[in-house]
């Protein structure tokens, strides 16, 4: 008997492995997108798939996002399970019409006769020094479109488990990959991937009693770091990884906030019209009598995504998170 040495794996490797295993398990799974074949994707997330499964299963398409998603619709209508890659967040916008007008509605329009099991993988968020159009947090656009699931992993294990779930889902899934976590590492055994929570469930990443940080994707490591730093201030912060923005896990979120009585939502997306507004409203509506302070938001500024040399001022960092925690009306504790 051989023991498999469990080595650290990156999130990108876990995502690749998820597609590889899904393709091996189900011949209807097809990957398509720009540069996903020979090159293995600009982030190398589809590396090796064309070689292992052939170009009919992992296809380099013409450079046209609406065409990629639009043809995926037809492929899904004929019984395939397409996984499409949008190269970058801001390059996915040409596909929005297909996504909003057809992908999200086809099941509803046809009363369930034409489900579209399509996974749309979108590398998103900033912090990688990308020039304009390479760092957008576009989740609010997708969240505002009924009929889509919007998932975003923040750990290596979730990257694998959640992408498998997305591909297996009979609903269209916008799968947002935090690109600055692509190279984050964790001990993870590709031969025995750990089970992850089901779609739609939030997970407590760090238990705490003083206040709850509600976050997801690229902001999870920021919140965990902030929680560590907060110990010096005497705060024991809980960190909740939302994982799934749609469906939204009101139950887990509210249970957490009721425990601590204080909450801060943290994300890179703009504050105005961003996911934090919806989350804060939901928490306030459901947990009002348990709250010791208003739900606060730490978000990106309401500006077009800044150039790389200035992005650190825009992205929510540890200090900004701690400043928000400090504003949670602790004086009342007296």
């Amino acid at each position: 008997m051989t023991t498999v040495a469990v080595k650290p794996a990156t999130m990108a490797q876990a995502l690749t492995r998820a597609m590889r295993d899904a393709m091996a398990a189900d011949p209807t799974v097809h990957v398509l997108g720009e540069d996903v074949g020979t090159l293995g994707g600009v982030f190398r997330v589809t590396d090796g798939l064309a070689k292992e499964f052939g170009e009919d299963r992992c296809t380099d398409t013409p450079l046209a996002e609406a065409g990629i998603l639009g043809t995926a619709v037809g492929m899904a209508m004929y019984g395939l399970r397409p996984v499409v890659e949008m190269q970058f967040d801001a390059f996915a916008y040409p596909a929005l019409e297909q996504l909003i007008s057809h992908v999200s509605r086809m099941r509803n329009r046809t009363r369930g006769r034409v489900p579209l099991p399509i996974t749309v993988r979108v590398p998103y968020g900033g912090g990688i020094g990308g020039v304009e159009h390479h760092s957008d947090s576009s989740e609010a656009y997708y969240m505002a479109t009924p009929g889509l699931h919007v998932l975003t992993p923040a750990t290596v294990a979730d990257a694998y488990g959640m992408l498998r779930q997305a591909i297996a889902s009979d609903d269209p899934v916008v799968f947002l990959e935090p690109k600055r976590l692509y190279w984050s590492k964790d001990t993870w055994n590709p031969e025995q991937p750990t089970e992850v929570e089901p779609v739609g469930r939030a997970v407590v990443r760090r238990p705490g009693t003083s206040a709850t940080l509600l976050t997801y994707g690229p902001s999870l490591p920021v919140c965990l770091e902030a929680a560590e730093a907060a110990r010096a201030e005497g705060w024991d912060l809980e960190v909740l990884d939302l994982r799934s923005l749609v469906p939204f896990d009101d139950e887990t979120v509210c249970a957490a906030v009721r425990r601590t009585g204080r909450a801060v939502v943290v994300h890179e997306s703009t504050g105005f019209g961003g996911p934090g507004g919806e989350i804060a409203a939901r928490v306030t509506e459901r947990c009002f009598h348990h709250l010791e302070a208003p739900v606060l938001r730490v978000a990106g500024f309401d500006i077009p995504y800044p150039p790389p040399m200035l992005e650190r001022h825009h992205l929510p960092g540890v200090d900004r998170v701690l400043d928000a925690v400090a504003r949670l009306q602790w004086e009342a504790e007296g």
């Binding site: 609406a66 065409g67 998603l69 639009g70 043809t71 995926a72 619709v73 037809g74 492929m75 899904a76 209508m77 004929y78 019984g79 395939l80 019409e97 297909q98 007008s101 057809h102 086809m106 329009r109 046809t110 006769r113 034409v114």
Partner: peptide, 27 residues
């Protein structure tokens, strides 16, 4: 039922049904 006579839904947004036809034929 689109599958009964193999007729996609009438598409209101112009030309958006064309890539669907291509994808289906390709599949």
């Amino acid at each position: 039922d689109p599958h009964e006579h193999r007729v996609a839904p009438l598409s209101t947004p112009l030309a958006t049904q064309l890539p669907h036809a291509v994808g289906l034929a390709h599949a």
